[in-house]
Computed example of a mutant assay.
Amino acid sequence: MTSLTRQAVTATLHCLTGCAIGEVLGMIVGTALGWGNAATIVLSIVLAFAFGYALTLRSVLAAGLALDAALPVVLAADTASIASMEIVDNAVVLAIPGAMDAGLTSPLFWLSLLISLAVAFVVTVPVNRFLIGRGRGHAVVHQHHGHHH
């Protein structure tokens, strides 16, 4: 595996962590509250971006950047990655028959989330590889904390 591909996989795993936390939490909350599909998906997407950005923000702040300098770095680093992951993730869940109507106790609910996140990961690695190869995406974060994989 090339260094660039390894960096892309690492960046995508990082993105997946934040996205999965937000996505699963949003699906759980929306389903538990009996919300419709659209409201549940919107909540999941908002939370996926929030958790994804928060995880990167934490590492950039820990590297010593001030909040006002860290925010643009986080937005530049994660927006394309989270967006591609969320588009694929939600498209897969919507494509699985009955997934959006499955309850929290249904194996279909959890299996569809697992499958959607796995597919989103596979699709997002090349997106991150492309961005990092051009000095964008997570490469921006690495420039600020000397943290190279």
Results as ranks from 00 to 15, higher is better:
80 A>Y: 08
76 A>N: 09
86 E>P: 00
145 H>D: 14
125 V>D: 10
39 A>H: 08
49 F>K: 00
67 L>Q: 07
99 A>R: 08
56 T>I: 14
107 P>D: 14
102 A>I: 11
52 G>M: 03
146 G>C: 04
74 V>W: 01
74 V>A: 01
42 V>C: 06
61 L>P: 05
80 A>T: 05
121 F>A: 04
93 V>S: 00
131 L>I: 05
60 V>S: 01
121 F>N: 07
135 G>F: 13
90 N>H: 10
115 I>F: 08
144 H>Y: 12
107 P>I: 11
74 V>I: 11
85 M>E: 03
52 G>W: 04
103 G>P: 09
110 W>G: 08
74 V>S: 04
66 A>K: 15
101 D>H: 13
142 H>I: 05
128 N>P: 05
55 L>R: 10
80 A>H: 00
93 V>M: 04
129 R>L: 12
112 S>W: 07
145 H>A: 07
62 A>P: 02
105 T>G: 15
65 L>R: 13
126 P>S: 11
87 I>A: 12
83 A>T: 15
107 P>L: 13
90 N>Q: 07
90 N>D: 00
51 F>C: 12
50 A>K: 03
92 V>C: 02
139 A>D: 12
93 V>T: 09
94 L>Q: 02
71 L>F: 05
77 A>N: 01
124 T>G: 04
104 L>I: 15
51 F>P: 00
118 A>W: 06
56 T>G: 01
128 N>I: 05
38 A>C: 00
50 A>G: 15
120 A>E: 08
38 A>Y: 11
112 S>F: 04
55 L>A: 10
141 V>Y: 04
38 A>Q: 09
126 P>L: 11
113 L>F: 11
94 L>F: 05
107 P>H: 10
83 A>N: 01
122 V>N: 03
99 A>S: 02
111 L>M: 12
78 D>C: 11
44 S>I: 02
67 L>A: 12
96 I>T: 02
92 V>T: 03
72 P>G: 06
49 F>L: 13
119 V>T: 09
75 L>E: 01
85 M>L: 13
67 L>Y: 10
44 S>E: 07
146 G>H: 15
98 G>T: 11
66 A>Q: 14
86 E>F: 00
52 G>F: 02
91 A>N: 04
58 R>S: 15
132 I>N: 07
50 A>F: 13
42 V>L: 15
52 G>N: 01
126 P>I: 11
91 A>R: 03
45 I>T: 14
46 V>P: 07
78 D>G: 08
120 A>G: 10
126 P>Q: 09
138 H>K: 07
36 G>N: 12
73 V>D: 05
41 I>D: 05
56 T>V: 14
45 I>C: 11
145 H>P: 00
89 D>S: 06
47 L>I: 03
94 L>D: 00
107 P>N: 07
102 A>N: 04
76 A>R: 13
105 T>H: 09
100 M>K: 02
37 N>D: 15
124 T>E: 09
123 V>H: 03
85 M>R: 01
71 L>P: 03
49 F>N: 01
36 G>F: 13
80 A>C: 08
107 P>Y: 05
87 I>E: 00
132 I>Q: 08
128 N>Y: 05
56 T>C: 12
81 S>F: 08
143 Q>E: 15
76 A>D: 07
70 A>G: 06
46 V>M: 11
145 H>K: 09
80 A>L: 12
85 M>S: 00
89 D>H: 02
145 H>N: 14
79 T>V: 06
69 A>Q: 15
53 Y>N: 04
